[in-house]
Amino acid sequence: MGANFFVNYEEVVAMILFGIGFANLLLQNNLIKKIIGMNIMDAAIYLFLAEKGYIAGRAAPIITDGVQKMEAYINPIPSGLVLTGIVVSVSVTALMLSITIRLYARYHTLNLDEISALIKKEEA
């Protein structure tokens, strides 16, 4: 069990990063830190995917020198998934940042709890 951690250290790192990102997104009060947490979480998933798709000693699946054997190349699907995932996470990040800008322009703070308190005060 313990030895596996050192053999599969990339997966271990990815999981730890996922936990860090998840906890930040959930627990931070500052909106920017939340967004950073979300990006760490997504990056950890992409690290995990990229590591799983890589096979030691093989090249990226682009034919340049005429080698057409399947054994010469790594699995391209995880890389494709990573690209798709990055597109999704970029758009979500942009959306989150734009909402944050709007909230900051209204309430001049990034702290979500303070914003809630200000909104309650505004209505009362």
Partner: peptide, 9 residues
């Protein structure tokens, strides 16, 4: 304010 906060949450 309410709807933007709701959207963020």
């Amino acid at each position: 304010g309410r709807t933007i906060e709701a959207a963020v949450r």
